Amino acid sequence: MTSPDTDFTGLKATFLNCTLKKSPAMSHTEGLVDASAKLMRKHGVEVNVIRPIDHDIAIGVYPDMKEQGWEKDAWPDLYPGILDSDILVIGGPIWLGDNSSVTKIIIERLYALSGMLNDEGQSIFYGRVAGCLITGNEDGIKHCAMNILYSLGHVGYTIPPQADAGWIGEAGPGPSYLDEGSGGPENDFTNRNTTFMTWNLMHLAKAFKAAGGIPAVGNVRPAWSDGERFDYENPEYRS
């Protein structure tokens, strides 16, 4: 049974699974992505899951790296779908205690779009929400999540409460999330965090959509460049 609080029809979400494995290889991160995506689809969200490793995404901090000498760059074909989404979830594995190289490339390419503005003169990412999912069999979930969520907030995404979830087995070499007997899909802590993240993303995205985004007051770049200071005053220091 659906209610106004559980119907998110009209919202769009993009999951970027930053695994190092090309399709159709099994990805442990995709197991956790699927859990969140299934919940979103159940409540009306249109979901698209992408493995960036399947695409020729160039390295760099410009929207189209072909203009910087790269022969190929799939990013200009991918990012319009991300900008058309109300929700972005970046998922990825832990390697050497840090985010995967693919995750870092995606963060850099999102940063490359941070100069774009919406119709109000705000960052193009304003009014959109984001979260992250992390898998691995070594420590680093919180470290990886902090890096991703800070980066996404910095470029303009809004991060709702409890916007990350992850699973690791025992510290050190061992089973990964989808391995038989790992306990990953049954882990109550992981399942709770994944569920809370998913619902909070949907709630906040729906609220933004209904409100028309974030009010364009005090955060409009062209106005600042034209001299508007939005009531800001330099503090008066006293010796």
Rank of each mutant, 00 (worst) to 15 (best):
4 P>M: 12
184 G>L: 11
34 D>T: 04
76 P>H: 04
51 R>T: 04
196 F>N: 11
35 A>S: 06
155 V>N: 01
217 V>H: 13
20 L>M: 13
238 R>E: 15
145 A>K: 06
34 D>M: 13
54 D>P: 08
133 L>C: 11
63 P>I: 07
49 V>R: 01
168 I>D: 03
60 G>S: 06
118 N>M: 05
205 A>N: 09
108 E>Q: 12
46 E>Y: 03
63 P>A: 08
166 G>W: 03
203 H>R: 11
126 Y>G: 04
62 Y>A: 08
145 A>V: 05
179 D>E: 13
33 V>Y: 04
153 G>H: 08
46 E>W: 06
40 M>Y: 07
164 D>Q: 08
139 D>T: 00
204 L>I: 08
39 L>M: 15
127 G>K: 03
79 Y>C: 13
94 I>W: 09
141 I>L: 15
213 G>Q: 13
152 L>T: 03
128 R>N: 10
132 C>V: 00
203 H>V: 05
110 L>M: 14
122 Q>C: 02
16 L>Q: 11
202 M>T: 01
49 V>G: 06
100 S>M: 09
32 L>D: 03
37 A>F: 02
76 P>Q: 02
114 S>Y: 04
35 A>R: 15
71 E>V: 05
135 T>A: 11
80 P>Y: 12
132 C>S: 07
62 Y>V: 03
42 K>I: 00
162 Q>S: 11
70 W>Y: 13
91 G>K: 09
134 I>K: 06
